[in-house]
Every structure is written in C-alpha cells, then in structure tokens.
Design a protein around this nucleic acid. Structure first.
Lengths: 235, 235
DNA sequence: CGGATACTTGAGCAATATCAACCGACGTGG
DNA sequence: CCACGTCGGTTGATATTGCTCAAGTATCCG
C-alpha cells in the first residue's frame, strides 16, 4: 500500500473501465513524483526506466538537435500518459520533459508495463489511441511546417494552445501557464524575433494582449481565420 | 477458407509469434486487393472501413491541405501495417495511400480489429511499436523542418529513402520506385524547382545521377555528411 | 538596487518561393 | 512507326519571407 488513493486516477482515460481492485494493484506499484517549475521529469537519450501519468501541472516536451537547437514537441497536461517510451518499443527517452509549472505525476518502472497491460486490458487500446492522436497532431504539424508561413503557424499554435490550456479571463482567453516568445518560436519552427514582431503587430490591432511569459487571446476568431489562410488585413 | 496461404504473413512483424491456427483464422477474414500504379488504396476523409497489410509494392501516403497542397506523409513498403485508422481511434482515414508501383495488400474490415487483437495478443504490442516508430519519425521530420534548410532536408530524405528502398546498381544506390522531383519536394516541404536545382548541382559534382522519376545516389556518404550539416563544398 | 531574463525593434541580407519560359522523354493513337 | 500531346524536368529572373546581427528596453527576483 503506497498511500495513494484510487480517486487520483479512476477518472483518467488510461484507466477507464478499471475496477477498484485493479486500480489499487496499479497504484501499489506507483510512486508519486513532484517537479518544481523548470526541472525535468525525464531527459532525452537517458534510459527510459519509468513512464508517467501527469496528475497536475504542465510539461514542455522538447527535443534537442545535434547542433543544439531546441524544438518543442508538445505540451502535455493533466491526465496524459507521458514518457511511455517502453510501450513504443524504445529504451531511451526520445525527448526531454520539463515542468512548465510545478507539477505532480505518478511514475511506474518501465519494467512494469507488461504487467499493467495484463492488469488493465483497456490500457493497450488507450495507449494506441493516445499514440494515434499524437501521430495525427505530428502529421498536422508537418503539413503546417511544409506549407504555411510563419504568421499562420503562430496563429494556429496559439489557437490550439487556447483550446487545450486556455482559461477565460476578463480580456479574452489566457494561455494558462508561463510561455515565452522563445517557446512559441520553438513550437512553430521560427525565431524568437519573428514571434515577437508578429505578436506586437497583433497586439496593435487588439487581437492579443502580451506580457512577460503571458499571452491573452482577445479575438480568437481573428486568429482562427488567419490560421485558415485569410490574410491579416485590418478590420 | 479464402485460399490465402499462411506463408504470406507468417514472417511479418505484425504476426510474429502467432501459431498456424491463429494465422489461418486471421487469413480467413482477409481479402487480398491489388492496386495498379497510380490508383489509391484508401482516401483521406473517407470512412475507414478497412485496414491493410502491404504485401508487395510501395505506397505513397499523402495528406492534402484545405487549399490544395499535397504533403507526403511517408512511403510504406512490404510488411507494413497501413490504414490502421481504427486502431488509432479514428473513423476516417487521415491521409490518402496511392500505389507508387503496382501493389498487393491484404485487407480486413475495420470492425474485425478487436477480434484480431483477441486472436493475436502480440498484435497490440506490434501496432504500438509501429505507431511509436512512426511517431518518432514524424517528430524527427518536425525537428528537421523547423531547424534545417532545404538542401539538408533533401539530402536526409534521399539518404533515408536509399536505406529503406534502395537497390544497389552499377552506379550507386537506386531509389527503387518511380519518384518525381515533385514527390521529393512534397516530402521535404519545398518546391519542385528547388529540388530540381539541388539535384542538378549534386549531379554536376557526381554525387547523384538523375533521370525521369529516377534517382541514383552515387556518393551516399557525401549526402550523409551534408545532412549532418557539413557544408556542400566540393571535394 | 543590481543582475538576469524576457522582450522589442530596426537594418541588412541570405535562402527560398514565385513567375516564366523552355526542353526533352515517353507513350498513345492514328 | 511516326507525330504530337502530356508530363516531368531544367533554368533564369525576380520577389519576398524570414533569419541574423545588433542594440536597446522592460520586468522580475533576490
């Protein structure tokens, strides 16, 4: 008994349909880990000895190129499986996951993955679906990077972020974790400078409101139509 | 009994470890389909009513953007699972798969996927691994598109193609299916014109040998070092 | 208050897309 | 079997996006 409560995970997609006994058995193997903002949960190219379910917080998952450039692969939120390298047949992590805000996750030893599949027959399906969704996202980004120009990519990225992590505030929709221009640049395949210029231009039109590591989207539909290719003429 | 022989699939990764009885049961539900060069096996946004294992040939899997631009998502070869939208939790195909050469595949109704998982316990793992490998590839391409310039991307794409589909010929390694400059452009996120110019430049140096829908790589190590960032100075 | 970190902005330039024209190979039908 | 049409490819000129370099300004935190 590790002192973790079933209610922590019962409602999460990966554990859907599991009974109390299974949940307890699963939790029995789990260890809960805390990461302060900025520290990393796992690191690229290190042995993938654990996999995780994020309970609380937000992770910025990045990959580093041989020549030292960083690319944001995705942002992960509560309830998501992360670091499931084993399940995907790898023995090292393909990316680094850093806490964008103070975060809590459950961790299991990678070696336990097969047993967990036995314990939770639905887990394989859930993992496949999660992998499918990520694959679909990745392909969408490839298409975007291949065909769209920077301003449209930034617009799309912000719209997606506002959908998954947005919080309604007075002036619009706030992207609810500290995100720098650099982060946006690394997520859209451009430079800090371009993102800054683009956001400044939008802010001038009242479409967004910026701040230090802070973005509020005031006119979401403007960004959406921009992302769909309608030119950014004033209006 | 559909008249298909176990030996067709026994050696393929998705069916690894299955016994003769299982293989027969699986084949019993399968239908074999033939696609002439240029015709499509499944189409983007259509209901995903079948999934496939490619037995022979090569597929060009593409995605079309709303504004009509095409992007090559991947090339698939013999033994690969394709069109597994169901497994990934989708009910339409996310892309179009066209035969790059005359091709043969086995097809199962999507509705049979759950039963097949029951019949072949290893299939879920194989599918997860395949999805993981594709996810990894997709992320690599995102990183590439985000950070590398066109010439390097083209070099990397050709190296990868030569590794997966290359055939040793007198002058070097031939990419063993008809591939146009346009295809390469759509696979690397650039234009036909740039690819043509780049290949012409390389041909001048004797690194590749081009032809109509034909590419032979004469000096693979040159392209590899180019792809890893060493400048394309003569040598 | 001082250092560090994030952000802004401008100028110049390189990479790459676009536009335009042309060439040549393949294959099909007369 | 040849002529011609189509498709794939080449090449040049031009336009433009977006990157790099270079300061300089806010904001946060200890």
């Amino acid at each position: 008994m590790s002192g973790l409560d079933r209610s922590l995970i019962a409602a999460l997609p990966p554990f859907a349909g599991a009974g109390p006994a299974q949940l307890d058995a699963v939790l029995d193997e789990a260890r809960s880990v805390y990461r302060a903002r900025g520290s990393s949960l796992y690191e690229q190219d290190k042995p993938a000895d654990s996999f995780f379910v994020l309970l609380h917080g937000r992770l910025r998952v990045t990959r580093l190129t041989p020549d030292g450039r960083q690319v944001v692969v995705r942002f992960a939120g509560p309830g998501e499986l992360v670091g499931v390298a084993v399940a995907l047949g790898r023995d090292t992590y393909p990316a680094t996951a850093a806490a964008a805000v103070d975060s809590v996750a459950l961790a299991w030893p990678s070696a336990r993955w097969p047993q967990m599949l036995g314990l939770l027959p639905a887990l394989a399906g859930a993992a496949l679906q999660a992998a499918g969704a990520r694959l679909h996202d990745a392909h969408s980004r490839i298409v975007e990077l291949s065909t769209e120009q920077v301003e449209r990519r930034v617009a799309n990225a912000l719209v997606r972020l506002s959908e998954t992590t947005g919080r309604r505030v007075e002036q619009g929709i706030l992207i609810d974790f500290p995100i720098s221009r650099q982060d946006v640049a690394e997520a859209t395949g451009t430079t800090l400078h371009n993102v800054s210029r683009i956001l400044s231009a939008w802010e001038e039109r009242g479409w967004v409101k910026g701040g230090r590591q802070r973005i509020v989207i005031c006119e979401p539909h403007r960004l959406m139509s921009l992302g769909e290719g309608y030119p950014a003429n004033r209006g």
